[in-house]
């Protein structure tokens, strides 16, 4: 509920008075919104292969590591990545497939882990909702396989599994795929970074310093 205040009525009154010559009646609002010119590129024109290559190229440009694999090879690929990380303790979101939780590592399954517990883990493995090639972006909607926001934030190393079928070329294509709008979403484009000191790009400030993406090709490809 809203905190009752006189300011609410005053501000809305002032806003309505300020826009009275241009504001539309509620019934016409949707039509006016629909008539906004949207001549930008909605669907990209790339082949599937080119689109995937663009995705990989743009991820790498912003310092993410990318490996490609197939569905069959996925558990082995994840295991190899984890081994290569030199890390031992990993967080897994509640719904992470068991096959992705490679043997030989310590797994903390998230069922409401405290920040302190997550902080102690060295890495995290998640799925994604979508990948956007144009900007090299990973989209998380924080489902059971993608995890709560905090688990992809505190550990220093994030491995994210993206299926080729989840990769779209343009940002509008992602929005078309959303269906129901997500209550929570995080878009990740490369690892945490800053350029606040003399515009020198430094990887890793507060978020994970290492972002690894495993792109899973369809078996036919």
């Amino acid at each position: 509920m809203s905190a009752p205040s006189k300011s609410r009525e005053n501000i809305l009154e002032r806003v309505r008075a300020a826009t009275k010559t241009v504001a539309l009646p509620p019934a016409e609002l949707a039509a006016a919104f629909a008539s906004i010119p949207r001549d930008y590129i909605r669907r990209g024109g790339m082949t599937v292969t080119a689109c995937h290559e663009r995705f990989i190229e743009r991820l790498r440009e912003y310092d993410a590591e990318v490996v490609e694999t197939t569905e069959e090879e996925l558990p082995a690929t994840i295991a190899a990545q984890l081994a290569g990380s030199g890390k031992h303790t990993f967080v897994a979101p509640a719904g992470l497939p068991a096959a992705w939780q490679a043997e030989g590592f310590e797994w903390k399954l998230d069922g409401g882990l405290s920040a302190a517990e997550i902080e102690k883990a060295e890495g995290v493995v998640t799925a994604a909702f979508c990948g956007v090639a144009d900007s090299g972006t990973i989209v998380l909607h924080h489902s059971a396989t993608e995890g709560r926001r905090v688990i992809t934030l505190l550990p220093d190393w994030h491995l994210c599994v993206v299926y080729a079928s989840q990769v779209v070329e343009t940002l509008p294509e992602y929005f078309d795929r959303c269906g129901q709008t997500p209550g929570l979403a995080t878009y990740i484009s490369g690892p945490s970074a800053t350029a606040d000191i003399e515009m020198t790009r430094i990887k890793g400030v507060h978020g994970p310093r290492f972002l690894h993406v495993v792109l899973v090709r369809d078996s036919g490809q």
């Binding site: 979403a185 995080t186 878009y187 484009s189």
Partner: peptide
């Protein structure tokens, strides 16, 4: 092309 993090 996109900032590292967008939170919604």
């Amino acid at each position: 092309r996109m900032n590292p993090y967008t939170s919604i």
